[in-house]
Amino acid sequence: MADGSWLSGERRRAWIDFLGACTLVERAVERHLHADAGISHAEYEILTRLRAAGGRMRMGALAAVLFSPGGRLNYRVTRLAQLGLVRREQHPVDRRGLYAVLTAEGTQFLERIQPGYADAVHRTMAGALTEEEFLELGRLSGKVFRALRPPEAER
């Protein structure tokens, strides 16, 4: 298939539809978060990952699970810190180690905006699929994700 023949007929249409759907869903959710909460989707993901990890993560581990270069993550964490939603803490032993920590304000902020986020996801994607189709999409996406995920993100 190195000759590109896989990009013909129905497979090409499937690829184009997949790319288009990903782009439009991401744009719609991004617009919603900017309008509703004043943050980006990437910043929302930082907050939810921190909460899922018990409220704190080393910056390197956070960068790995978000597939985000350190500089970009640093910029976003700085912005969230300016909003009072996260703070940085020095590792108690490793002077080079930094943690991103979800603040109480960050937790309250997430609780406030999550219903709108869930609604935006439903309007942009989940509402277009049956429950069975949505779960199948998740299963197939997970298969691709696990095949492509860098080893450091598995930790």
Rank of each mutant, 00 (worst) to 15 (best):
E89P: 00
A81C: 06
L66F: 11
G71D: 13
R96G: 10
G84W: 10
P92Q: 07
L83A: 15
V101W: 04
T107A: 15
L62N: 03
L83M: 15
H91L: 00
V86W: 12
A104N: 04
L98N: 08
Q82I: 03
Y99H: 01
E45A: 15
A53G: 07
R49S: 14
T107K: 13
F109E: 10
A52W: 09
R76K: 12
G97W: 05
V93Y: 03
G84Y: 07
A52D: 15
E89D: 01
A63P: 08
L102Y: 04
A104E: 14
R79H: 02
A64G: 03
G84E: 04
L110V: 05
G84A: 05
G60R: 10
L73F: 11
R95E: 09
R79D: 01
L80K: 00
V77P: 06
Y99W: 05
R76P: 01
I46N: 07
I46F: 07
R56Y: 06
T78E: 05
R76D: 04
R76E: 05
H91G: 03
T103Y: 02
P92N: 07
Y44F: 15
L83E: 15
I46W: 07
A63C: 07
G70A: 01
Y99S: 00
A100M: 04
A52Q: 15
A61H: 14
Y75H: 07
L83R: 15
R58T: 11
R88L: 13
A63S: 14
V77E: 08
A100G: 09
R58I: 02
G54M: 03
G106W: 09
T103A: 03
A63W: 08
G70F: 00
R58L: 12
R72F: 10
A64Q: 11
Y99P: 00
R96Q: 15
R49T: 11
L83N: 10
L73C: 12
D94R: 13
L62Y: 06
R96M: 14
G60Q: 07
P92C: 07
N74Q: 11
G54N: 04
A100F: 03
G71F: 12
L102T: 06
V77T: 13
R51Y: 05
D94V: 10
Q108F: 03
T48K: 12
L73D: 13
G106H: 09
T78G: 00
V86M: 14
R76W: 04
V77N: 05
E111N: 12
V101S: 04
L83F: 15
R51E: 14
R72G: 10
F109M: 09
A52C: 09
I46C: 09
T103D: 04
Q108G: 11
L110I: 10
T48D: 08
P92G: 08
A52Y: 08
T103V: 02
I46Q: 06
A63E: 09
F67C: 08
R49A: 15
R58N: 05
